[in-house]
């Protein structure tokens, strides 16, 4: 079965319980996300909106286009989208192959997406294409820990995580961002070198 279709099925299936499963993470990361997202400005592409749990942490008044591969997730995000005090629209779209023109967005935001997409470097290259030169990629992601004490449990759980949700726990996202041709200039810890915040820039030329 095509991996993207399988993933779409996984997320359609998980949509009902998604808010419940992620409620602990939302509570823990809310404050730090608010601070991190305060840099968002201009026309923004929000990749992998899910049920829109992070919308409450966005500064008001932004112009956002949100995409997700799962129709079920987007359906559940609608109330949060309509409550957002700014301009937000949503589209069903695969991040590997978006329909946007080159150099469309000032900023791209990903939250726990680069761990889930089938080909992260391809997705990042696509996001680079739609970003304006000098535009920023803002990513809040979980990654492979460089500390063996915490990397080891992630390796053990990775098989189960990939099987059940298609989410990898051992991706080197900083490396992937660089491989896609971004200039990575922020790599900050949120929790145990596992949950991290990255800010990168598309080179001017």
């Amino acid at each position: 079965m095509n991996q993207t279709i399988k993933m779409k099925g996984n997320f359609d299936g998980a949509a009902k319980l998604f808010d419940f499963i992620r409620s602990g993470d939302s509570r823990r990361w809310g404050t730090i996300q608010k601070r991190f997202f305060s840099q968002l400005q201009g026309k923004i592409l929000y990749v992998g909106i899910g049920t829109g749990q992070e919308i409450v942490n966005f500064p008001p008044g932004l112009d956002i286009v949100a995409i997700d591969i799962s129709a079920e997730m987007l359906k559940r995000a609608q109330e949060r989208i309509s409550n957002y005090p700014g301009n937000m629209t949503s589209l069903i779209m695969d991040a590997h192959n978006t329909t946007f023109e080159d150099d469309t967005f000032d900023m791209v935001l990903t939250v726990c997406v680069l761990c889930t997409v089938e080909k992260p470097v391809e997705v990042l290259e696509e996001l680079k294409r739609v970003l304006k030169p000098g535009g920023k990629l803002v990513s809040f992601e979980h990654v492979q820990s460089q500390n063996p004490l915490f990397a080891w449990p992630l390796y053990l759980m990775n098989f189960l995580s990939l099987k059940l949700t298609g989410t990898s726990l051992i991706r080197d996202t900083a490396k992937n961002i660089r491989l896609a041709g971004f200039d990575l200039f922020t790599d900050a810890n949120v929790y145990l070198d596992i949950v991290k915040m990255f800010t990168s820039r598309k080179p001017e030329n």
Partner: peptide, 16 residues
């Protein structure tokens, strides 16, 4: 424990 208290905070501790 993961849903109410966070995935990595619970999983890493319980692994050890």
């Amino acid at each position: 424990l993961v849903p109410p208290f966070g995935a990595f905070e619970v999983m890493i501790a319980l692994h050890w």
